[in-house]
Amino acid sequence: MECHDARSLIQSYLDGELSQAQAAPLRTHLLDCQPCRAGAQDEKNLKRWFAAPAATAVPEGFAARVARAAVQGESLPRRGTLTPLAGGAAAGATGAVAVERREASLLRFVLACTAAAALLLFTLALGIRTLSLPQTNQLAADDRAEVQLERTLEDLDQLNRTEAAAGAQKRP
């Protein structure tokens, strides 16, 4: 193995990403090549600077609170560290799940109501049409309108007569 190839593999080797077949020739090379060995040692030294920070304890009941908020759309108390936008987004995330589900069920309800209303209207229209059809096969006009008109004309005549009589009495 050449130094150039060895150098390109050192990082993956130290990260445990090489197979046995890839690692074996590199190990042999490192035993023989002091500069590459020094390079590998530098990489190892660097890796020792990556000390993970101490773990942050998960607060008691965190999972239950979050699951309840997510599933039931409840709002969660915030620790006030997020920017207003983030807080809004997070609260929105909580509310949005519930809102979306509520909207979905509301939409289903509205669609069902619309379908029922359409069916009712159709039935009513059918009923009205059936009732408005002649009940017999005789063509007979409805005379109620005529009676109404005659009565109105009589009432007007009566009014005219009364007005004329009243006018005659006033004249000297």
Partner: peptide, 23 residues
């Protein structure tokens, strides 16, 4: 915790992560 230090901030961000996950 690899990105932020404040425990309260970490909790808020974890909470936001799980709520987004559910959504």
């Amino acid at each position: 915790r690899g990105y932020v230090r404040e425990p309260a901030e970490i909790e808020d961000l974890a909470q936001e992560t799980f709520l987004k996950t559910y959504k």
